[in-house]
Simulated scan of single mutants.
Amino acid sequence: MSLGIDLSPATKQCNFDCLYCELAPTATVDKQDNAVSAETIITELKKHLNNKIDVITLTANGEPTLYPYLNELIDQIDIIKGDTQTLILTNSAMLSDEKVYNSLLKLDQVKLSLDAITPEIFKKIDRPHQNINIDDIVKKVQQFSQKFNGKLFIEILFVHGLNDTKEEVLKLNNALLSIKANRIDLGTIDRPPAYPVSGISYKELYELSQLFDASLPVHIASRVHAEANNTSYTNEEIINTLDKRPLTMQDIELLFDEESKNRLLKLIEEQVIIVKKLDNLEFFTPTTHLIRKKDK
């Protein structure tokens, strides 16, 4: 059971503009101009933290390591978290910042993205902010993995026609052999992406997994059934939730109570929420979300 903390709730702030991002396209940044105080986050965390929570997940409407008070926040969470684990989901680019690097060392779990090794492919997929270099990222990930005492996960997301070639997988494999990871998650696009790109099939994902060295802890990431949460959402909360993370009906069945499902149906009737089909899945997303994508 994960309790997520969005370190950029007001707007998307990211140093990547990934082709596959579920958020609308946005110009990259190298710092957060709109940041919530660590005190505000801790106050909210205290209200919701309980012994059912296995992990506190630091994430963002963008890149969480751009949060300016990250080190302070982690220290304050450590004071109140008890046995609960701390985790961050990051694109790895800010490991070059010594303060961020040392802050992440304090966490119990870290999940780092590494989508490509070839500079041209990296730039096409992840669309990084200026002066972000994949060679530097790989070196810092390798270095971090040797020093980090917690659980380290690596995530690779495959985009059809870009990083799904045998040549690129072998380059990823060679880099991963020097990274001390507990698990390497291979995935693909399963939510409506920011740009007109597509994922690969499970069969193709499995075939690519066979190219990695047998010593690597490779895992094929896929959707799994979770426990029902049945939470109440207002109209505004439904729209904000779907704007940040489009959901399938399966997701909604798990997350929404009956009244919230009825509110969703009403929003669909009013065309405030629309259905977007991706491969064999249908996602619910605000109309404004798709308009922003088209405008980009």
Score class of each variant (00 low, 15 high):
I154D: 07
Y101L: 12
Y206N: 01
N182T: 15
R183K: 14
H160D: 10
L216N: 01
A116T: 09
I220P: 03
S113C: 07
S201R: 10
L205D: 00
L114F: 14
R183T: 10
V218W: 12
S201M: 03
E168T: 10
Y101T: 11
R127I: 15
S209E: 11
E204Q: 09
L104A: 13
L157P: 07
L208T: 01
L211C: 00
L152C: 06
Q109E: 14
V169Q: 06
K99C: 07
N182K: 11
H129A: 14
K203M: 00
R127E: 03
K123F: 02
P119A: 12
I220A: 01
P119S: 11
V100S: 09
R223K: 13
P217V: 12
L170E: 07
D126H: 01
N149C: 12
A175C: 03
E207V: 05
G161L: 11
N131Q: 07
I184F: 04
V138N: 09
L107M: 13
N131D: 10
S178E: 09
K147H: 12
K151T: 15
E207Y: 05
R127A: 06
N163T: 08
L112R: 05
G161R: 10
T118N: 12
V218D: 08
N174E: 11
G199M: 06
R183D: 04
S222T: 13
S178K: 12
N173T: 10
A175Y: 04
V141F: 12
L105E: 14
Y206C: 00
L170I: 14
V138M: 06
V110R: 03
I134N: 05
L105F: 15
A194P: 00
G187A: 08
K140Q: 13
I184V: 10
Y195A: 00
Y202E: 01
I117N: 04
E168G: 08
S198M: 02
N163M: 03
Q146E: 07
K140H: 13
L186M: 08
E120R: 11
I121L: 10
K147I: 15
R191Q: 05
